[in-house]
């Protein structure tokens, strides 16, 4: 835990006041179309002889509107990378800029606000709050912000709900939904605030392959039709083949940065990484 964490509760109200307009900052983000840029990012666990380096000086840029897959075998550091980029975990050194803001300098209160307003999440499972119905889960980011969606946002959410086929499930509880339906709700929630970027962590890991492909199709539609930037962590070659760009990680480094690939090519390359280890 960082020292600043201890003080965040006392200061969070102040810091909310200090950074009231993430939205404005987003508007003058670099015009080069970079949504996230990471430089010299290092994450180390432990200290001394037992220290483990999970991320070893990673530098990368994610382009706005692109669907990027981050691939790698287990233990390659891909989840750690995503957690740090999403403001869920702290870096050991290096910087992460999200929409022009260096998030490694933010305290816990600001990071919380960042996740609420500017980042969307789709996890592998346990995405939804069991106590809220579908609509409650989709609207949760607004509710946490203490505001009602504007008319324009409301129209956007309505459109998402229709596109994702959730219209007649709005008052269902997560426990009444299938795995695929739950992921659709998570996607609707992630897109509802039109975040800078959506992070998806193995979003199809718990689904059968047909439902998985549907969910991947929805993600790539969101990117193509609405220009939504998406970063997806996965170790499934089929899932990665839906992405515009694929970053391969091994032992905490990026070993390949590629455009769209076929599942067979991805699988072959993954096997070659595994073989070298």
């Amino acid at each position: 835990m960082r020292v600043s964490d201890r003080f965040d509760s006392a200061f969070s109200a102040v810091s909310w006041g200090r950074l009231p307009n993430f939205g404005c900052m987003a508007s003058h983000t670099p015009a080069d179309g970079v949504v996230a840029d990471v430089s010299d990012l290092v994450k180390r666990y432990g200290a001394g002889a037992t220290a483990v380096t999970a991320l070893d000086e990673i530098t990368l840029e994610l382009r706005r509107g692109e669907f990027t897959a981050i691939m790698g075998p287990s233990g390659s550091g891909k989840s750690t990378l995503m957690h740090i980029m999403a403001g869920l975990d702290a870096a050991s050194s290096g910087t992460v800029r999200l929409g022009g803001v260096d998030i490694t300098a933010l305290d816990d209160g600001d990071l919380t606000e960042l996740r609420r307003r500017r980042v969307g999440f789709v996890f592998q499972s346990f995405n939804l709050l069991p106590i809220l119905d579908v609509l409650g889960n989709v609207l949760l980011p607004f509710e946490l912000d203490g505001r009602k969606p504007s008319a324009e946002e409301r129209a956007w959410i309505d459109r998402l709900i229709d596109q994702l086929g959730l219209r007649n499930r709005l008052d269902h509880r997560p426990s009444q939904l299938s795995g695929g339906q739950q992921q659709r709700v998570a996607i609707a929630r992630a897109l509802a605030t039109r975040p800078e970027i959506v992070f998806a962590d193995e979003p199809t890991g718990n689904l059968d392959s047909r439902t998985g492909r549907e969910v991947l199709g929805l993600l790539s539609d969101a990117s193509r039709q609405h220009g939504q930037s998406i970063a997806m962590v996965t170790h499934d070659p089929v899932a990665a083949s839906f992405a515009d760009r694929i970053l391969f990680l091994a032992d905490g480094r990026i070993v390949r940065d590629s455009g769209r690939l076929q599942p067979e090519e991805i699988a072959t390359f993954m096997l070659s990484i595994e073989a070298q280890r």
């Binding site: 509760s9 969070s12 919380t112 996740r115 307003r117 980011p141 929630r189």
Partner: peptide
């Protein structure tokens, strides 16, 4: 624990959790 962690990830502040 898991649910509370999800809430934090989605943007619950510590104060809201408390």
């Amino acid at each position: 624990t898991r649910e509370l962690g999800l809430m934090r990830a989605l943007g619950f502040t510590r104060r809201q959790l408390r």
